[in-house]
């Protein structure tokens, strides 16, 4: 049993727009263990970014609003802190990198200065010391000729190099958690592997936790310890990577798996896209959000939202199929009590 460094419970986030209120994140709970990787997966627009950005205090308010929930970092509440206090953990205890490294760095500041800035602000270092350390950080993310590179501007870097610089920057203060929001989506396939490799390497040396947001289940299978599957603003299944892949307990997770190519035998396996699209978050259905697309849907699913069922220690699924009265199915892993 390892220690939870971040505990998020019942987080809900709304956006007020001209079209109405978007309930982007609904009652999301998850834990991040020290030194482990939590992967958050789900299709586009399901609220993954909003979830992590709310924890970091990065959602724009207004239009955004955290309506409920808590997030405890080492037991300390960090949700809804005023900027000054939030800045004591942002960039210090939690580092963050984003999807598009090309636009995530200030185009008119050298890479070295941007990394050094974090150290100057949080560690009170002089500009020279901070810059030297920035060069070291760049070297640790395997950027060749780091001394020279630190003096260059973002437009002189390639995408992969920029993402490394972003990692170097988020690692500057030795954070306990690194949040990576689709860190490889904008990059070439070959570079993707390198970036993940660097992240894993640093995780080992620093004993750092990672929250990895991705669409790529293959990546999840390779590096995640725990997985949270999000759908329409909710976590519909969470558990260890083995739970999710080998004992999938939610029809959506099953659907995701069938939509994913695998390299283990089974050459004839057909990739099955999930038909339909997620529900409108302006007015989420009162029943299960997956009802419209679920091949196992039952009348009950339409009427009321499924309860979370704890199947084994740490493996939770929100689906009526786990109700004792529900008919058994062939693919859904069930625990009968």
């Amino acid at each position: 049993m390892s220690e939870n460094i971040l505990e998020v419970t019942d987080l809900s986030v709304e956006f007020t727009t001209y079209g109405g209120t978007v309930k982007a994140v609904r009652d999301v709970s998850f834990n991040v263990e020290r030194g482990k990787t939590l992967a958050i997966v789900g299709e586009s627009g399901c609220g993954k970014s909003v979830t992590v950005q709310s924890i970091m205090g990065l959602t724009p308010t207004p239009p955004g609003k955290i309506t409920s929930g808590s997030a405890k970092l080492n037991g300390r509440e960090i949700l809804g802190l005023p900027t000054r206090e939030a800045n004591q953990f942002r960039g210090v205890e939690i580092g963050m990198i984003f999807q598009d490294p090309m636009t995530s760095l200030n185009p008119t500041m050298t890479i070295g200065d941007q990394i050094a800035e974090t150290l100057m602000v949080h560690r009170g270092k002089s500009r020279r010391d901070a810059f030297n350390q920035a060069v070291e950080l760049l070297a640790r993310t395997h950027i060749p000729e780091a001394t020279k590179r630190a003096k260059q501007y973002p437009f002189e870097f390639s995408g992969g190099m920029l993402q490394r610089a972003m990692i170097a920057q988020s690692l500057a203060c030795g954070p306990a958690i690194l949040i990576a929001d689709e860190p490889t989506t904008a990059l070439d396939v070959t570079i993707q592997a390198q970036i993940l490799e660097i992240m894993l390497e640093l995780q080992r040396t620093e004993n750092m936790s990672i929250i990895l947001i991705t669409h790529d289940l293959a990546v999840v299978a390779r590096i995640a310890d725990n997985v949270a599957v999000m759908y329409a603003g909710e976590i519909i299944e969470s558990g260890s990577v083995d739970d999710i892949f080998y004992q999938s307990a939610h029809p959506y997770t099953v659907g995701l798996r069938s939509a994913m190519p695998s390299n283990t035998g089974d050459r004839d396996k057909q990739l099955l896209p999930i038909a339909g699209s997620p529900p409108d978050l302006f007015s989420p259905p009162k029943g299960c959000g997956y009802y419209a697309r679920c091949p196992y849907a039952m009348e009950a699913c339409h009427e009321s939202a499924p309860d979370p069922y704890t199947l084994t220690e740490g493996h939770i699924a929100r689906c009526w199929l786990h109700h004792d009265d529900a008919p058994p199915t062939d693919v859904i892993h069930r625990v009968t009590r």
Binding site: Y291, A297, E299, E303, D325
Partner: peptide, 17 residues
């Protein structure tokens, strides 16, 4: 909570418009 009905859903084909 009311009694839940676990019979298969009688979904009419939903045409997205």
């Amino acid at each position: 909570m009311s009694v839940l009905d676990f019979s298969p859903a009688r979904r009419t084909a939903q045409i997205e418009q």
